[in-house]
Design a protein around this nucleic acid. Structure first.
Ligand SMILES: NC(=O)c1ccc[n+]([C@@H]2O[C@H](COP(=O)([O-])OP(=O)(O)OC[C@H]3O[C@@H](n4cnc5c(N)ncnc54)[C@H](O)[C@@H]3O)[C@@H](O)[C@H]2O)c1
Ligand SMILES: NC(=O)c1ccc[n+]([C@@H]2O[C@H](COP(=O)([O-])OP(=O)(O)OC[C@H]3O[C@@H](n4cnc5c(N)ncnc54)[C@H](O)[C@@H]3O)[C@@H](O)[C@H]2O)c1
Lengths: 215, 215
DNA sequence: AATTTAATGTTATAAATATAACAAATAATT
DNA sequence: AATTATTTGTTATATTTATAACATTAAATT
């Protein structure tokens, strides 16, 4: 029987926990309490313990969680043994910033290629990652075993590009464009919409201002 | 009595609806059905109707929603009359990409300034937006009435910068760094964590692969 | 004008997520 | 060795979010 998927929010937090656990490790800390981890992430200790319960890890009680062990368990959940290959589609302002950022950051999520329709970019290297022509996407996704796409093409090209990528076997997409995409069930899509995030902030800031004015 | 805040997810979707409604308007469409709007965003029609119920707008039934009217209502909810001023803190790779992108996009959320600790950047202009020295943040946040911060400083400077910004009266923060921040209740914080988003995708792609292998 | 149809608006229910309550465990203290 | 203190692990409850069910409305049709 297949083990059930973890709640989405738990997966997100596990990723966040791992980062702070790695920091702890770097500082020579061997154990950490649920309330300390909670404090770092501004959530409750119960939340932390419940997440850790989900992944089945148990501490040597009373001393807190063993930092090293917990990192290993989280790794076994999120990472794959041989890593997942990632490519950036659209090497413009954002695509470059993202490539620069990710390159050499996470060992198990490697940016192995970038793609652009602009033939003057194709063939060049950026941050040690080769930029390929969009013409060759199909063969390269296969041969380079690219399973995750960072979509940073202009909005107008978003839908068309997505269709191509899915057709070529891409399994996960992080959508930086503000165009809503529709993908089949077997493809995991994560929307990453700055405008919406910013407008949401604006709404709550406005609501807050309204409160103050009333005082 | 104060009118209750909208659910967070509804606010997000309203922002998304508005964008597609503006597209519809540009295409000369005057009315839209809930199921059409739902189709664009890959959600259910009930979800759309419920969101629109929350904001109290009612259509001329049977013809669908009046695109123009709905845009106006959403605007009245998200936007402020005189707009909210936004500033970018940390004019590096990401800060520049974001400034470039936002400049001239949304009328009611104006990027009015960028800030950097690097004195060679301060004084210059980028995308028609002036870059100021971090030394002057306090006076400028006040005088330019900046209420929202886009935080694109290096992780190591995130906490310190946040403290400064809150002290200076910032009310909303979009955190691009991967450092978890702790802010007081009156400040609205939105985390915008690419690593976590990507690792989440990796988790589900991995789970999906596992399924396939078992077949 | 009555009927049908296809849409909305709203209440009821389900699912996902977060919080609270508390028992179990174990290190430290008496 | 018994007691206390403190932290975990887990079940129970609350909140938030999404979906379903259905009554209501108004244009189109008969
Ligand atoms: N820059 C930002 O901070 C930011 C913020 C939010 C959203 N976005 C979104 O990210 C996307 C990219 O933004 P940007 O500022 O980097 O734009 P950009 O114009 O700088 O870059 C787009 C790149 O995509 C390439 N391209 C165009 N059509 C293509 C195609 N069909 N296939 C492959 N490549 C193609 C272009 O040659 C260019 O290099 C846009 O959809 C934008 O809405 C950007
Ligand atoms: N580039 C990306 O795509 C990306 C993706 C995810 C997250 N991030 C995060 O965004 C942040 C910026 O990334 P980047 O790639 O643009 O880095 P960057 O080094 O290119 O830019 C950082 C800028 O901040 C300035 N700065 C440094 N200390 C400062 C301070 N105390 N006050 C004001 N400005 C200061 C620097 O002078 C520089 O211009 C980082 O925290 C990074 O983790 C970036």
């Amino acid at each position: 029987m297949r083990n059930k998927l973890l709640p989405e929010k738990t997966v997100e937090r596990l990723s966040e926990y791992r980062r702070s656990l790695l920091n702890c490790l770097a500082q020579g800390r061997t154990h950490i309490y649920s309330h300390d981890l909670a404090g770092i992430h501004n959530i409750t200790a119960v939340q932390v313990r419940r997440d850790i319960m989900f992944i089945g890890y148990t501490s040597s009680q009373r001393k807190g969680y063993d930092v090293n062990e917990l990192i290993t368990v989280i790794r076994s959940i999120i990472d794959t043994d041989d890593g997942l290959n990632v490519a950036v589609f659209g090497l413009g302002n954002l695509g470059k910033a993202v490539t620069h950022y990710f390159k050499g950051k996470r060992s198990r999520l490697n940016i192995v290629a970038t793609f652009d329709i602009d033939e003057s970019k194709a063939g060049q290297e950026y941050e040690g990652v080769k930029c390929y022509s969009m013409n060759d996407y199909k063969e390269l996704i296969k041969s380079l075993k690219i399973s995750i796409a960072l979509l940073t093409v202009p909005g107008a090209a978003a839908v068309e590009t997505t269709t191509k990528l899915i057709d070529a076997g891409i399994e996960g997409i992080l959508n930086f464009t503000t165009v809503p995409l529709i993908v089949p069930d077997h493809v995991f899509l994560e929307e990453y919409d700055m405008i919406t995030s910013l407008e949401k902030i604006a709404y709550y800031v406005k609501a807050n201002k309204g409160l103050k004015d009333r005082k």
